[in-house]
């Protein structure tokens, strides 16, 4: 956890649970990442991109008031790497997102970082 493997990575967290979002932010920041946004709802991607690039997005599937699949599709369309972090099984993924990065909760820091690195690897 002390190694700063994600150093310099600009990461967005989309997670409707405040505690998990904070927990996750602490983990990633500890790993050297710059968490540029933490949101309980689907964020305005264009506004975020104006502030700078996004290396990876960590997404909870169930955002309380809806599913995040459309957001994931938008990311996919913009070639922004993302990883699902969810309590649901992978079978819940729709067909067009079936191959996406995926973590089941609870996930420890190492798995989250490995998945993000794997997803974002190509972009940096």
């Amino acid at each position: 956890m002390t190694d700063r493997t994600l150093s310099g990575y600009r990461i967005v967290i989309v997670e409707d649970d405040y505690y998990q979002a904070q927990d996750c932010r602490q983990l990633l920041e500890a790993a050297g990442a710059k968490v540029i946004a933490v949101s309980a709802t689907v964020p305005d991607l264009s506004a975020l991109l104006e502030e700078g690039r996004i290396d990876a997005v960590l997404i909870d599937i169930n955002l309380g008031h809806g599913l995040s699949f459309d957001f994931a599709r938008e990311l996919k369309a913009r070639a922004i790497p993302f990883v699902f972090l969810t309590g649901y099984d992978a079978v819940m993924l729709p067909d067009d997102l079936a191959g996406s990065g995926y973590l089941t909760k609870p996930a420890d820091a190492r798995r989250i970082m490995a998945a993000l690195l794997n997803a974002a690897g190509g972009s940096r």
């Binding site: 649970d17 505690y19 998990q20 904070q22 927990d23 602490q26 169930n62 969810t86 309590g87 649901y88 099984d89 819940m92 089941t104 909760k105 609870p106």
Partner: peptide
């Protein structure tokens, strides 16, 4: 079943986070 799984996993995640915080 999927929701239950989701909730349990979420809860554990939350407990972990609450414990840490």
């Amino acid at each position: 079943v999927a929701e239950l799984q989701h909730r349990v996993r979420n809860l554990i995640g939350m407990v972990r986070s609450v414990a840490r915080l």
